[in-house]
Design a protein around this nucleic acid. Structure first.
Length: 513
DNA sequence: GACAAGGAAGCGC
DNA sequence: GCGCTTCCTTGTC
């Protein structure tokens, strides 16, 4: 179940008269109910029950909220909502999942539960929950004792300094309790902001667009729209024929008018990007002296250009910092384990069965989104930061620097790649890149079943050649490339197709998304 | 012959 | 250590 984004929690949580702290969040997962307060985290295993889960009563100032959820049956499960998903991949719900949640709360009614990824959740997916869960599912008896009633008194969340819808959303979804004013909120804000930056940076790298939507060209907008729609499974033509400055002026209604199915999601994403850009601007204004002062203090006339250019360069300085953060992120490791992450860990590739955990998706019901396809690329940014400062993410692919005029180059040049990710890109990412540009590469590789991630290499020589150019391996051939692809079988990135077919490979969920 | 599958060693980061 | 790259063998089509 997804908490409506405008539902504010924070009131007292008591179970059978025992005060358990202030409720920060509650969630239904496929097999458990989580109640989270600022003191601890209660987890109930629904599989141990043959009865309905306890009802939650939320009293003033909000209307009563009655959640009447059925224990999952073998044929269905509750919508799954986990907090550890990886950023660059959409979190999905199991297509077969069902939910029987009824509510009398206006907030809930105004926010119908949809089997779609929550854009806010996706963005903030990679942060660890600050809670150490207290698992109480070992004993049915214990649960039955607690089952009697859970009374939640809701009190308005105190206004936070620097509060923004973005941060509030993060606090709620990442189970970070909203507390009294005297509690330090800065570290939490910092975490949220850094995570947003990291996610956005990754997307920028992937799409070769700037961080600030206001500065996007029409092409940038189209690229971002296409990418976002694809990741949210929105099947429609891009209805936005405008540049970034016009895009950011659109309201949610404007988005919905243009895109009734999914316009709200796109708007939410745009809102995040816009907020982040504004935050960056304010941050830069604090960090950077005025242009004139810059010139005076540094003596470098190179900085005497317009303030906008200075901001632009600074933006990439920040990227370098984010790269360092990214390099230290546990997300990569998460992918490599079993592909699934718990709610309290960072995203990993998981299954689309349960929405969940960041980063790309697997059959397990716990995980959710795929590992960020750009993680490696980002990790290289720091090393190549100098390049970035001079030439921010551009559409100039590595091939541009070569003098080779072969047809392959002509094609490769069109691929929007990032200089910094040129040689560190993973093969599966490269393959996806080709697959995502059927207009350019359908002649050598194409999807056979996009939903299942099955694709066919039509021209093995060309694909290998392109890969070799990207990796600066002139001796690359299909034999070597296919060997690398087969390595992905063990890693869970790809799998053998049901029926062995020549030159046909299949991505594991959710790497193809 | 082309390709699939996988072992093994090596390399660069 | 990871993610390939390279080389190799064996088997299938």
């Amino acid at each position: 179940m997804i908490l409506p984004k405008d539902l504010m929690l924070g009131g007292e949580l008591s179970v059978q008269g025992t005060h358990l702290g202030n409720l920060s969040s509650f969630q239904y997962h496929s097999n458990r109910l989580d109640l989270l307060s600022d003191r601890t985290d209660f987890e109930f295993d629904l599989n141990l029950l043959d009865c309905e889960v306890p009802s939650l009563e939320i009293t003033d100032p909000l209307p009563t909220l009655n959640l009447d959820c059925q224990v999952p049956s073998p044929s269905g499960s509750y919508d799954h909502y986990s907090s550890s998903s990886d950023m660059m991949s959409p979190m999905m719900f199991s297509p077969g999942s069902t939910s029987s949640i009824s509510s009398t709360t206006s907030a809930i009614k105004s926010s119908p539960i949809k089997s779609r990824p929550n854009p806010y959740q996706r963005v903030f997916s990679s942060l660890d929950s600050p809670f150490s869960p207290l698992v109480m599912s070992d004993s049915v008896k214990e649960f039955r004792q607690l089952q009697a009633s859970v009374n939640v008194k809701i009190e308005p969340i105190n206004q936070m300094k620097n509060d923004t819808p973005l941060l509030r959303q993060y606090l709620i979804q990442e189970r970070i309790p909203v507390v009294d004013e005297d509690v330090k909120i800065e570290p939490v804000i910092s975490m949220a902001v850094e995570q947003v930056k990291r996610d956005i940076q990754a997307t920028c790298n992937l799409l070769c667009i700037g961080h600030d939507p206001c500065l996007w060209s029409k092409e940038d907008v189209a690229r971002w729209i296409q990418w976002t729609m694809q990741h949210y499974g929105i099947l429609a033509e891009n209805p936005f024929d405008c540049d970034g400055s016009d895009l950011v002026k659109l309201t949610e209604n404007d988005f919905l008018l243009r895109l009734p199915e999914g316009g709200d999601l796109l708007y939410a994403q745009m809102d995040i990007w816009r907020s982040s850009a504004e935050y960056n601007r304010s941050e830069m204004e604090q960090i950077l002296p005025p242009p004139e002062q810059f010139v005076h203090s540094s003596g470098n006339e190179g900085y005497s250009s317009s303030s906008s250019s200075i901001k632009n360069e600074s933006r990439f300085d920040i990227s370098a910092v984010l790269d360092i953060l990214d390099a230290n992120s546990p997300s990569t490791n998460m992918y490599e384990t079993n592909g699934c992450m718990s709610d309290t860990t960072l995203g990993s590739p998981c299954s689309m069965d349960g929405m969940n955990t960041s980063s790309v998706n697997s059959p397990s019901s716990i995980c959710t989104s795929p590992p960020p396809p750009y993680s490696m690329a980002i990790s290289q940014l720091n090393r190549n930061n100098a390049v970035n400062v001079v030439k921010p993410a551009s559409n100039i692919p590595p091939e541009d620097e070569e003098t080779d005029d072969t047809d392959d180059d002509d094609i490769a040049v069109k691929i929007p790649t990032i200089k910094t990710s040129t040689t560190n890109i993973h093969l599966w990412q490269f393959v996806k890149e080709l697959l995502l540009h059927p207009d350019l590469y359908s002649g050598c590789i194409h999807w056979m079943d996009r939903e299942k991630g099955i694709f066919k290499i039509v021209d093995s020589v060309k694909v290998a050649t392109l890969w070799g150019k990207r990796k600066n391996r002139p001796a690359m051939n299909y034999d070597k490339l296919s060997r690398s692809l087969r390595q992905y079988y063990k890693k869970g990135i790809m799998k053998k197709t049901e029926r062995s077919q020549r030159l046909v490979y299949q991505f594991c969920h959710p790497y193809h998304l």
